[in-house]
Design a protein around this nucleic acid. Sequence first.
DNA 1: GCAATTTGACCATA
DNA 2: TATGGTCAAATTGC
Length: 350
Amino acid sequence: MACVADRQAAVREVAQVYELIKLQQPLLLLHSSSSHLAQSLLGKALRALNVALSVMNQQQPPPPPPAVAPVTVVVVKAEPHLSPPSPASADSEATAPPARRGAKRTRRSAAPVGGKKNSSSWATLTAVPYDDGYEWRKYGEKKINGTLFTRSYFRCTYKDDAGCLATKHVQQMDSDDNSSPPMFHVTYHNDHTCSSAKAAAKANTGSSSNNNSHLAALLADCCDGSGCNKGLTTTTINGHAAAAAAAMNMNMKQEPSLLPPPPPLAEPPSACFPYDQMPQQCHQLLFPVSMEQQFPGNGEEIPSAAGSCISGETSWDGYYYSGDMAAAEDDRFHDLERFLLGDSFMDYQY
DNA sequence: GCAATTTGACCATA
DNA sequence: TATGGTCAAATTGC
């Protein structure tokens, strides 16, 4: 089918542009006189490409499920009003006053609930509900009628600091199949108006010793546990480790009842951390970096923990570059394509 | 001691 | 009135 070939070519083109931007992003941000502007533009570009790929993906049958059950993130639906918010709309919402802890309880004055507001909302189906690159604080849990599991309510950790109104609800889906990892229906409301840079700066300044210790543990788990810093050419992270890393990323305690250890993977899903499994702190705290750090160019595996985390910018960065470059390139692309097509509408921030 | 989570109560909406 | 979403005091963990 010519149209299929054309679409694949288009997808490939967009994916390559996406990849190129991501690769060049550190340098652009590092050398730009206005890093904020650069970051904003890059974010918009990446988001647009992501949406474009999502649209393309909707026009073709879904890809066959993987042989193993890696951590997956798929779009449940993209209703007209359930589209990912644009940065512009996010900016317009940033003026809402932040809620204050301990303030006198005045109900329903600022944040109407249940989708009545004009803000955007969208939903995803994922095995890793806590790993979406943002930091969330749990503020409630509720037993919902007709469901076996409770629904958890999260809001952005930086709601108070940045007035970020982003919230999400995580509902474990009922399933008869005990052999497969649990899936979660995650509904997002409002775009993040807090910047990841702000979050990263906060973490980097050591304003909270908790953050630093948290990061240390995170890096240890992220890079040591997965073997990324042990000179392995390819590494793996099973669902359990991903969930653990995700939970750490969330600054929250893992709920045993929600995430039982899934069966080990028969095959490594991809090199190093797939993007949707990589703790966001790896992006934020070790960024920006030089291209030399990302790509030594001497055929060596990126040795350091920092390098391996940085390499997680894309899912293919754990590969051995001195080997068959064409094969590696091909694998890299397919990993990227899987990531892009399977992770549509996720709101990535760098 | 501080920050995050838990949990029961409160409130808006259908 | 049932239900879902949020608040905030109490609890827990670092």
